[in-house]
Amino acid sequence: MNSLYSRLRGTAVWRSVFRSGTGDTNLHRSLTVQQNIFLHLASVKIRRRALEFGVTWYLGTLSMASFVILVVTGVLLMLYYHPSVPQAYADMKDLQFVVSAGVFLRNLHRWAAHAMVVLVFAHMFKVFYRGAYRPPREFNWVVGVMLLLLTLFLSYTGYLLPWDQLAFWAITVGSNIISAVPAMGAKIRFLMLGGHTVNANALLRFYVLHCVILPLIAAVFLAVHFWRIRKDGGLYTGDKPRE
């Protein structure tokens, strides 16, 4: 089994894709991380203590995981969804009653979205209480706050998309708060909704924000966030040395 695996890793095709080569030395292990576009944001080595559950509760990891789940389920949902009135609502019904595993897909997206909001908040508080925000990690904390806001915006824009009573009135209430901004509140609200009320324009606008603009911005911020973990000295493991 193992020899088959190593032989496979030795083939020309495999080596053309993964540059780490055969062998189980630390060099090879380092190369898998270093030579991988997705993993190279992380350092090759990591403090043993940073892997302990109690230190981070893996909240950042789990936040990222829910983001990935949301991207995957979200893209699948886009296959069934029209951002128009009232077809959007009819699509919800189709997902529920006709599409294979449609309900499951929607459930997973919805609950993962709630989970992400909770996890990101929890991540923030955990980082604060550990003191992990302090210099030299102060800028990464700011990036984190931006990611928290992005998470909220993503969730909020997605909330309107089913176009049911719950969605419509939640967005109406939320957008009414914005119009309280002095001087330009009404303008901002108009810009956000594409009209004076929550209507088909708002649905389209929220759809584009939810599916394209905000995820792209979030992806950029996430990349910076991970990169800065490494550049700011790795995961913060606390003041006290291990016994």
């Binding site: 009819a90 019904k93 189709d94 529920q96 009653f97 006709v98 049911d164």
Partner: peptide, 15 residues
């Protein structure tokens, strides 16, 4: 009409 379950098709629900 769109429902394909007995409960949703016939009875009053939130939706």
């Amino acid at each position: 009409g769109v429902a394909t379950t007995v409960e949703e098709a016939h009875r009053s629900t939130k939706a």
